[in-house]
């Protein structure tokens, strides 16, 4: 094992970006305003694409560059633009989705990070690639997105959480196995794109039928209560 300070700069950069992505997921979790959440999500996509490019540079795998460009275009630019446009048309851009017990939620997120770290310790033993330290961060990203999914009420922030979850999976693929086969990656990227579009359409339908985008109100759709 070499000391951290003796690692090449590119590997230190990869770790720094991994940590920044972790910060962005905390920021996403704590963001109450819809527009701010979408902006943080865009930043997360940007960081992720930068990290992918760095990994591509470090490992010399050209197909990762394509992934990097793809995630830059889709996650950092197109989907945030789409979400902001839809929110504006729905008039919810300046809405507030209050975080329930922010202190407790952040503590839970911290605990999740430690938990994920504990979970991936055995994995680290098996692999020797430079990004193995970041696997815990990618898992934590998935977990924190799930936490965000269950603590939010508004449909729009839940979609952001869902997209961030996909970011985590993509991150895991990049760090753990140096990316998935190109076909799979392309497929997932377009799935996400389609999902974003479909969500947008759904927002309008949900709002038209129950006049709110508060997902807690969706329980009214249960037949029992009718």
């Amino acid at each position: 094992m070499t000391a951290y300070a003796d690692l090449p700069l590119i590997e230190q950069l990869i770790r720094t970006f991994a940590a920044l992505i972790l910060v962005s997921s905390f920021a996403l979790l704590a963001q109450a305003r819809v527009v701010a959440a979408i902006q943080v999500f865009a930043w997360q996509g940007f960081l992720l694409s930068a990290l992918t490019a760095l990994v591509a540079w470090n490992s010399g795998l050209p197909h990762l560059y394509i992934s990097a460009v793809l995630s830059l275009v889709l996650k950092a630019l197109f989907i945030p633009w789409l979400l902001i446009r839809q929110s504006r048309r729905l008039g919810i851009l300046r809405d507030f989705d209050a975080v329930i017990r922010p202190g407790l939620t952040l503590m839970a997120a911290g605990t999740l990070v430690i938990f994920c770290y504990n979970v991936v310790i055995p994995v680290r033993e098996f692999t020797q690639i430079v990004t193995r330290d970041a696997i815990a961060v990618s898992l934590a990203l998935v977990m924190i997105s799930l936490l965000m999914l269950i603590t939010r009420r508004k449909a729009i922030t839940q979609v952001v959480a869902f997209m961030s979850l996909e970011n985590g999976l993509f991150f895991a693929a990049v760090t753990a196995t140096q990316g998935m086969p190109m076909v799979v990656e392309l497929g997932i990227a377009f799935d996400v794109l389609i999902a974003a579009v479909i969500f947008g359409v759904f927002f309008f339908h949900i709002r038209d039928s129950i006049e709110t985008l508060d997902v807690d109100q969706l329980s009214r759709l249960r037949e029992m209560d009718e």
């Binding site: 094992m1 070499t2 000391a3 951290y4 690692l7 770790r15 991994a18 940590a19 972790l22 910060v23 905390f26 704590a30 922010p102 202190g103 952040l106 911290g110 990070v113 430690i114 770290y117 330290d133 970041a134 815990a136 961060v137």
Partner: peptide
């Protein structure tokens, strides 16, 4: 709280990412 979260992530990333 932001300051604490940042310092916490700093400590965690020392343990998780710089554990050499």
């Amino acid at each position: 709280a932001v300051a604490f979260t940042l310092s916490l992530i700093g400590m965690l990333s020392f343990i998780m990412l710089e554990g050499h």
